[in-house]
Each structure stands twice: as structure tokens, then as C-alpha cells.
Write a protein that binds this DNA or RNA. Sequence first.
DNA 1: GCCGGGACGTGTTACGTATAACTTACGGCG
DNA 2: CGCCGTAAGTTATACGTAACACGTCCCGGC
Lengths: 377, 377
Amino acid sequence: MPAVPELARAGTPDRAAARVTSRDVARAAGVSQAAVSLVLGDKWRGRVSPGKAEAVRAAARELGYRPNLAARSLRTGRTRTALLVVPALTTEFFARVYTGAARIAADHDFGVVLYPSPEGIGPARPSPSTTHGGRPVRAPLVPDPFASASAALDGVIASSMAADALAALRTPGLPLVMLDSDPGDATASATVNLDIADGVRQLTAHLTGLGHRRIAHLAADVDSWTFAVRTRTLTDALAGTPDAVVHRVPTALGVDAGLRAAHTALTVPGPRPTALLCDDDIIAAGACKAVRRLGLRVPEDVSVTGFDDLALAVAVEPELTTVRLPAEEFGEAGMRALMAVLDGAPTDAATLPVALVPRGSTAPPPDTPHNTARPGG
Amino acid sequence: MPAVPELARAGTPDRAAARVTSRDVARAAGVSQAAVSLVLGDKWRGRVSPGKAEAVRAAARELGYRPNLAARSLRTGRTRTALLVVPALTTEFFARVYTGAARIAADHDFGVVLYPSPEGIGPARPSPSTTHGGRPVRAPLVPDPFASASAALDGVIASSMAADALAALRTPGLPLVMLDSDPGDATASATVNLDIADGVRQLTAHLTGLGHRRIAHLAADVDSWTFAVRTRTLTDALAGTPDAVVHRVPTALGVDAGLRAAHTALTVPGPRPTALLCDDDIIAAGACKAVRRLGLRVPEDVSVTGFDDLALAVAVEPELTTVRLPAEEFGEAGMRALMAVLDGAPTDAATLPVALVPRGSTAPPPDTPHNTARPGG
DNA sequence: GCCGGGACGTGTTACGTATAACTTACGGCG
DNA sequence: CGCCGTAAGTTATACGTAACACGTCCCGGC
């Protein structure tokens, strides 16, 4: 009846508020502990009378009972906890992946523990012992790997990892869902991918349609499938436009790195590229700065495109033409796949569509008649 | 001896790779299970001979033993897991807070579970039962609050919550560390704050020093201490400059909202403000867009300032003058405070310094002799 | 020569839950 | 009337760990 029952029984000031167990509830309701477990576990149809069931529920409510998760996990062998391994959480993209995954997890009464690699995208290489339990352990503190815990996880979702890092994550008996990883390289319980290749195709069609023929690709110099597929697809996508040339400029991640790479791309000897195809929005933002520092304009002199469609894409001016990756849906799909695996579903793979978002950072190249080609729509 | 012992004993293909327990290790090492627990728990000095201790460690390594976390938690009553409650993870700021907190947690062999409020900053109001166990539970799915779990958490860190949400988080027996919350309103186990007030003072000194007298404050319309203190301090900080006027324009969060609020601030009847003091960098980015859409320039016609110093601050042009909030250190300090509380330390409070970062988005106001006043440094 | 105490271990128990196995009552049916 | 199936419960057990309480031996001091 009282809204805050905890305060009513705050009579034990010594330690942690005298935990109330299922046995306490049983005593209060005049039944056995087993009956309490059955009722609260919703397995009582035909085992406990409706009247007693209601009494149990009332007693539990009254006492403020909450089941002890550790005991439950010990008994059932399930923890209702998933580990999400992401290269870096401070990247908006992965924060949104987490948000989507956490939403689905909540629907299934699952918790999500994060393992953000301290090294960032690419070199992430957690050892199995490290990831078990989701408790990253500093090497100096715990000399022996087995000192870290296990049996704390029901499954793992790994996003955008390098192939060898993925192999290290593989643990016998622990379902592994791979997000945005090479579909062919490892045996995962399930796979979810973004249709990056289609995004690249849409992007190149957009640029060549505007008339661009000299394109610099600011390629993230990171060992990750999601970036590898950009580079690979780009050459294929431009095969239909024989006079198009693409110049690959490797770059680190970040605004500054993008700025430097764009500077390189725009000042290299030979005819200047008219478009900078950047591997993500942040690199693209840096590229825009480089263009302006060289006294050029976006998009009149140089077109710039991004990838991801982060909040940043509409914060800069001009707003970035980019490929929208459905980050939340990505996380949702990953967690849904894990739930399916835990329910015994067979291994399967899904691919999520992406969409080109044309904005102000792309335009026909300079000194080109506007009717050379028709933009897509 | 083998690098990947799990693969060597993958002979049971049926279920989850036949867990190896401390009893298995004991059998292999020829000792009792108690001895294994003592050795691996590093409590064996004078209880187990060095030779047997080494044998136990070898056996554990050989078998790939990892302690069962659920059983350990059930026995010890500790879970080595902390809950971090943040308004929204997709905000870079809170992602960085998490990163800092997770780093310290790892040093103490703690895990971190997140509770991102689905509603975003402000209206976050998790009930105690919801937050217990870090498993957000949808109301429709689980009708009774006690169906969610407890005993899964050793402590809670709550960041930038509204006062009533904080009150709801308070749970007897569960340590609560408050981050960036009203220091006076609730009894927390510990408190860590950013010196937001000082940041506002530095910002206003910077602006008035440049000669600005008409300032619009784009104030986040969100019930959170960190924003409330900005508004409160601003009037105090301008008290020393009698001819300064500040016009408060409430705004939601986000680029678009900032754009609209800035438009309002700049087109309201009367003399136009020469500076827009924005409650965070994202609002400031929107404000810059509004300035340019009105045919004005940043910073020549209108100065714009942000708050937080996100990656976005240097991605836009001009780069934002802002107040750098040490997000990672903030999370670190919060987790350190929780660890101290768990070690029995008394309640205490800390305040982290912030720093003005002058960049290109501020300049003396137009039609003002540059020597009206001296900028700070 | 006896005794106290440290080194070295082991047996046992309890943590709180879920569930298999068992018991009893009772109504319907052959 | 005997039997069985189902409802309505209870009793008992095991999950894997940490740690308490209890032994035994040996050595050194008086």
C-alpha cells in the first residue's frame, strides 16, 4: 500500500538494509519457498491456487522483495547479460549502436555490458579471458588471465572488429554475433551487416552523375572490415565510368587527420581532384576545413562526402552529403539476432540497407557544363 | 602449456563446453577445493605451502579455470558491478564520462552497467526497482516492479539528473555517488561536481573583456542542475558590469533547436545582441548556422560560445570558443569516489576545475573601438 | 619433558534460487 | 467401489564459491 515500502522498514541501521529473500515472502504469505518461486516465475498455473498466488504477490510487494540475481544465475546457469564489444564508445556511431542494442535487451529483460577497446578502432584485440565477465582487467594487476571471471555472460556481440580480434573473441560455448565483419572469415552464431557496398555505389553514382571524374578517397587506415569494403567496392563501382580516376589517400580517424589527408590530396602534383570521398563524417569535416584553408570553396570548387550521418553532418556548413548508416537499428538487429540464437535459432545472416543523403557539400565540379550528366533524382 | 587450452578439451560437443570448477582444479592439483579458493584468492600466505600453491595455479592454468561469478557473488554478497546512470549515451559528453568511469572500474576489477534514460536529459526518472540490477524493464512487459532483480549492484553513480529523479534513485543500503547535481538537495554517499560556475565566470569575463554588453543566453530548457547553475551564475557574473544586459532565450537541445533559438534571439525587437552564450557546443553549432542564415558573420558580427568542448567544437568553422569540461576525468572521479565509499571512506565532495578555450568564434563586437577594454590574457 | 603456537591443510557450511520428485486430496469414470 | 488423473502443495537438492572451524604436525622455549 505505501508507495515507498523500503522506508517503512528502515529499522535496521547497521548494514545493507537486511535483504528480504523468497523465504521471507513465503513465511509472510503462509506458503513454502518453492511456491513463491513458482508464482513469481509465472509458472503456477495448475500448481498454486489463484488465491495463494495473489497472497504471494501481495506479500512480495509489501516486503519489497527483489530476487537475488546471483543466486538465480547460479541456479539457472543463465545471467541474462550480453557483452557488447565496440571499438570506441566516444564515437557517436557506436554509442547509437549500444543504444539500439540496449533497447532490445531491455525488452528481453537482459542487461548489456560494454567492452570498449582502449586502443580504439582496429587494434582492439581483447583476449577471451579478458572479455569473460565483461570485466576488462589490467595486465599488471592480475598476472594470470584465469583470475578474471566467467559464467557472467550469455552471449557476445562484436562490432566492426578486425578478423584476428574476432578470432580471439571466439569462446567455446558462448554465442557470438558479429556486426559489420567479414561474412566469410569465421564461424559466428549470427551475422548482421550494413550494406556498405551499396552505400559506396550510391555515393559514386551521385558523384559521377554530377560530373566528377577525379575523386580522392580519404581512406581510413584502420584494419576493419567496414573500411576495407569501402575501398574494395569503390574501384568496382567506378568501373562503369572508364574516364574516372580515384586516388587513395590513407588517413587516421579524426578531424585533424582528415584535414591533413585532404591537404595532401588537394596539393599532390597533377590535376586536382574535384571530389573528396571520405570514409566517415568526421574525416569529411576535417576535409572541408582543408578545402577552405587552401582558399577553395565547398562545394563549388571541391565536393566532399562523408559516411555515417552523425549529428555533426548537419552541424557543419555546408551540411554534408553522406550515407546514412542506421546505427540504432544495427544494434537492435544484433541484439535480436543474439536473442534468436539463445532461443535455439539456426545461424543466419542479415544485411541492413543504407541510404544516400544528398546535402549541400556536393555539387557539379567547376568548369564543367552542368548538363554533362543528370543527377540521380 | 598450449596457448589455447580451451580447444584442447573441446571433446564435449553437446552443451556449453563443460564448465571447469574449482573442484576440478582441486582434483587435478591433488588438494582440497578450499585450498584452491585460498590460493587463487591470494590468501594463502601461511596456509598453503608454496609448492602446492604453484601446483594449484598450474592446474588452473592448464584446465583454463575461470571462477563462476554468480557463485562468488552469491557467497560474498558483492558483485563488483557498478551502475552508471546517464541521461543519454549518444551525447559525446556522457560517452566520455562512461569511458573514464570504466577505466577506473577496470583498475578495481569492476564492471560497469549503463542505464541510459530513454527520455534523454532531464525527464529521466527511473524507479528504484527499474534501476536495480541495471536491467531497465518495460512497464508493459513486467507488471510488478519487484519482478526486476536486485543484489546485482554494489553501487550507483548518477550523472546530471534532476533532483526528483535523484531522489527516486536513492535506495537503502546502496551507495550513491552524484555527479553534477545540486550539492545541497540529497544525502549522497559522495558528490563530484564540475566547476560550472567558474566556467560561466571565465566566459563572461572573456566576452565583457572583448567589449560585449548585449548578450543572449541560449539556455537549455532542461531540468538539470548543470544547466540551472549556468543561468543562475550568469546574472551574478554580469553584476560587475552594470551596463551589460543578458536576454535569456530557452531552447531545447540539438543543432536545430539551437538554430531556432538563435534566430529568435537575433530577430527580437530592439538592439541586436552581439554575443550568443550557448549552454552547450551543439546548440552553439546551430546558433552559428542561424547567424549566417541572417546574412551575418561569426565572429565579426556576432560572437558565439559553447560549453563542453566536444569534438564538434573544432569541426565547425570558425572553431568554437568554449569551456572545456573534463569529461573523462569526471567519470574517473565519480568511480574513484564510489570505490572509496565501498572501502568505507566518509562522505565527501569534490569539484573539478574547468577551463576556457578561446577560439575563433569570439571577437570584439562590431562598431566598437577595440580598446574599450582589454581581453584577459 | 611439556606446552604453546605457527604452518599447513581439510571438512563443512551457507549464500538464495529453481525445479525435480514426492505427497495428498478429490472428482469422474469404468 | 477401486482407480487414475489433475490440482495444490511441500520437501529436498544442487548450482560453485568463500571462509569458518577444526585438526595435525613440528619446533622452540622454559
